[in-house]
Design a protein around this nucleic acid. Structure first.
Lengths: 151, 151
DNA sequence: CTAATTTCAGTCAAACTGACATAC
DNA sequence: CGTATGTCAGTTCGACTGAAATTA
């Protein structure tokens, strides 16, 4: 019980989480600076690996990315041969996206960089505090992703 | 001990905090949609009220906003008569920014909206969990703000 | 002369909007 | 028919970059 009484900004989680996210984003960018990929590319590769191939709409939804932005994201990953798009035989509107062997190799390197950024961000927290923070953040996210936030 | 094993994204705080921040930002925007101000404007008014008048550089630093972006932010707030800039007698390069009576009135309304957004975000957490989350997020922020992240 | 403060102009990435063609 | 998917073009916002003018 020292100083800081009634600072609105330091009491509002909507504000704190924005500041923390900005800091995290800077850490990620500094770690990812060496390569040609950004945070969102990592998200795509990680999701495809963790939960398997998917068509673009569900993939975008579960990453919280707009479906139209997913298009150019996948264009870039496909140009690098990290993912492949193939038509869904069951529904010719859809395209199934899957990670390639090259993509898996790239993901392994990215994992280390993202892990390092995570470690930088959480440097002042104990292991159990890190877990608590991760769990609380997860519980604050919107449950099942509503398809488009727009329209 | 149910499902979800080894999902990279749901274990990385750098990722979770970005998703949570996006969600928080959407909540804030939906609550602030009625008015002419955005999250950052609220930050300026709140900071000026909580810690008092300040010159632009320290004000920008403690909000984590770039100094050049603070200029247009203050231009907009000044046009609404919510803040006033006056020269610092002690150093004619500096401008002291303070909140006006109209700004204080506006801040009171904004407080309610931001509080509502906060409550939406934290709906699924208990009061003590909310406090834990706020404290952990605060401890993850960079301590004393390094002036410019650039240069 | 060097350094700090405010400001401007421009870039870049992320998120969003509205529309379109195709296929269900 | 109405609806969903992938795509494209354009906008908006936030963060960043580099430079300028003024003053310490």
């Amino acid at each position: 019980m020292a100083a800081t009484a009634s600072h609105r900004l330091s009491d509002r989680v909507v504000w704190l989480v924005g500041r923390a996210s900005l800091h995290a984003q800077r850490l990620i960018q500094s770690h990812l600076a060496e390569g040609e990929l950004r945070k969102q590319h990592y998200g795509v590769l990680a999701s495809l690996t963790d939960v398997g191939p998917a068509t673009q709409a569900p993939l975008a939804d579960r990453l919280g990315v707009d479906r139209s932005d997913m298009v150019s994201l996948l264009d870039e990953l496909e140009a690098l041969r990290y993912v492949a798009r193939r038509p869904d035989p069951a529904d010719r509107r859809r395209k199934i996206v899957e990670i390639t062997a090259r993509g898996t190799t790239a993901l392994k390197k990215l994992d280390l960089l993202i892990y390092a950024a995570d470690d930088d961000l959480l440097a002042s927290l104990t292991p159990s505090e890190r877990i608590t923070l991760a769990r609380l953040l997860a519980r604050v996210l919107p449950d099942a992703d509503g398809p488009h936030p727009s329209s």
